[in-house]
Design a protein around this nucleic acid. Structure first.
Length: 342
DNA sequence: AAGGGGTACAACCGCCATGCT
DNA sequence: CAGCATGGCGGTTGTACCCCT
């Protein structure tokens, strides 16, 4: 643990501290504030004067890291005092959880992660911490920022509310399938760095713009489908249409390690089943994946699924999105599996 | 080259829930 | 039961960097 923290400290020492600071930068006010820092107070003793705010200095980071390495975390107010940090306990806790923790994953979200965020947000709304709990190494703050900077921006560009049905539909049936395609591509070429991991705004804007231009009645086709996992469409699309058997083997090796079944058992059973199916599909187990995907669908919804495949195809063509051929289409929707379930 | 708007992200704020005294 | 401390969460702000004109 301590060794990891030391490594972390080394990274921080390399210069990555402070609000709004990109790696390698430190703001002038931070340096000034650090220079002004006074000797530490006695733990629990002195008046709560001169509490520091704003960007954290490297020294503060190191102090916090070393203190936690030695004493552990928790009791943040007492910790802040004992460590000699002129910060509120809240500030220390936030700094640790969002930035200094050794297991915090940094860098762009992968397509898988983006897909999961979109899916979970469609289910849980702005429950950032709950969503973050399903993305190992990611913080609620990071996910919240992703949502605000990427997703809400595109809703704004499309002149529709991020909570509107139209935007949600565009997201579900256009953006997420594309994400799934990229996720599949990532798994197929797991050893190669994929520079285009992030779905660009243009992807959504161009696709959704086409979608929004479609007749309203087309959009309403998805009505009453709120309980259907978008992943059940998305993952079937990507994995079934693109994997060969050898690719599947490679994909299996690169599949997410999360044991969805083990995590299952919470209130949202359908979600976990979907997630589990996602894992199976990603691992190349199309049959069981598809089976699992659809086992929670209401029987009366099935004809709608058939309609939906044509609907998505129409949308995708209008949006210039590449679609699988006829054979792949059949695999895409795995209708055999759907009817077998009835 | 300059500058202004946009973007990304760390940090803060206010509120609420929980647990302890 | 009331009051307080603490932790957690979602929303918002501040600011350095990027990019386009």
């Amino acid at each position: 643990m301590e060794m990891v923290l030391q490594q972390r400290a080394a990274v921080i020492g390399g210069g990555n501290a402070g609000a709004g600071c990109r790696p390698g930068h430190m703001t002038a006010p931070v340096v000034a504030a650090a220079a002004k820092q006074e000797p530490t107070e006695e733990a629990g003793g002195g008046a709560e004067t001169e509490l520091r705010r704003g960007p954290w200095t490297v020294d503060e980071d190191l102090t916090l890291i070393n203190y936690i390495a030695e004493h552990g975390e928790g009791r943040w107010n007492a910790l802040a005092r004992a460590a000699g940090l002129k910060r509120t306990g809240k500030s220390c806790r936030l700094r640790w959880l969002n930035y200094l923790r050794p297991d915090v994953k940094r860098g762009d979200f992968t397509a898988d992660e983006q897909l999961l965020i979109l899916d979970l947000h469609s289910r849980w709304g702005n429950r950032w911490s709950k969503i973050a709990a399903q993305l190992p190494g990611r913080t609620d703050n990071e996910i919240k920022n992703y949502w605000r900077t990427r997703v809400q921006k595109h809703a704004k560009q499309l002149n529709c509310d991020v909570n509107s049905k139209r935007f949600k539909d565009a997201m579900r049936f256009l953006w997420m399938p594309r994400l799934a395609e990229r996720a599949a591509a990532q798994h197929n070429h797991s050893s190669a760095a994929i520079s285009g991991d992030m779905i660009s705004g243009d992807d959504l804007v161009s696709s959704a713009a086409a979608a929004l231009a479609m007749p309203e009645m087309m959009m309403t086709m998805t009505e009453n489908s709120d309980d259907r996992s978008p992943c059940s469409v998305v993952t079937t699309t990507s994995s079934s249409s693109s994997h060969t058997s050898s690719e599947s083997t490679a994909a299996a090796a690169a599949a997410p390690v999360t044991d969805w079944d083990e995590m299952q058992g919470g209130a949202d059973h359908e979600y976990w089943s979907t997630a589990s199916a996602l894992q199976q599909l990603t691992a190349g187990d199309h049959h069981h994946g598809n089976q699992q995907l659809f086992q929670f669908q209401e029987v009366e919804d099935m004809p709608m699924l058939q309609d939906l495949s044509g609907w998505v195809q129409g949308f995708s063509e209008a949006a210039g999105v590449s679609m699988p051929d006829q054979t792949q289409q059949q695999q895409l929707w795995s209708l055999d599996d759907i009817w077998r379930m009835q």
